[in-house]
Design a protein around this nucleic acid. Structure first.
Lengths: 115, 115
DNA sequence: TGACATATATAGGACTCCGATATATAATGT
DNA sequence: ACATTATATATCGGAGTCCTATATATGTCA
């Protein structure tokens, strides 16, 4: 099945923030973690992720800090702020509303005359 | 709750085609019908719908025909073609896949170590 | 040494959707 | 009679989102 990328447009921020709910992660980690959690459905691209993270940082939803991993390499970790958690909660609620509404339309409302 | 329009980006074509599955409709009717079926969640704009319909027509997913209603007014009705029904089926399957995957991520995969 | 994975980043472009605007007719209000 | 609102179709410009392509640097494996 062809991947219709437009379908989930706008929900990348939601998904990324959700990943950061439990723990701080660096960019590359998020790409892999999202792929794993979605059973290989979401293939978040680096060219999408990094500008997205920079945007979230500007808005104050995440903060970034450099940290040296065990192997001595610098990784840029991202942390979900308290404000970011509020945004995440809103986005989750919005997603649920929309997903429910789409489901309702797809279920086939039929009976146009009922209006 | 603020309407995060980006969330359902790309699914407008799916929703509109779904409306045409049961019966031919004209543009304005689709706007109202979608609003009704989604319990007032989706407010499809005229500036979104008409270009979308023209695009679907170009691709051969719908055909259009003028028809005079009982009140003597000309309405531009749209009909979902056989090819369009195929596209609709694919889009529905894609939506279900993505909605399921988002749900899985939101459920909280946690356990990063499992990777 | 050359290919590939890890890791971060930007630029340019495609696509989707919205707001504004235009046009025309019908219904409704005052 | 005149104004407003609803019906109905249509286009344009712009904002936002995401992708591809590209750049850079390191590490690993053959």
């Amino acid at each position: 099945m062809e991947l219709d990328k437009g379908l989930i447009s706008g929900s990348m921020a939601l998904l990324v923030m959700k990943l950061l709910e439990d723990q701080d992660l660096y960019g590359y980690q998020m790409i892999e973690e999202l792929r794993r959690r979605s059973d290989d459905t979401f293939h978040l691209r680096a060219g999408t992720l990094y500008p997205l993270l920079h945007g979230l940082e500007e808005k104050g939803s995440v903060t970034a800090y450099e940290q040296t991993a065990e192997n001595g390499k610098n990784r840029r970790y991202y942390h979900l702020t308290k404000q970011g958690r509020g945004v995440l909660a809103e986005k989750e609620a919005a997603w649920n509303t929309y997903a429910r509404a789409v489901g309702q339309v797809l279920k086939g409302g039929a009976c146009l005359a009922g209006a």
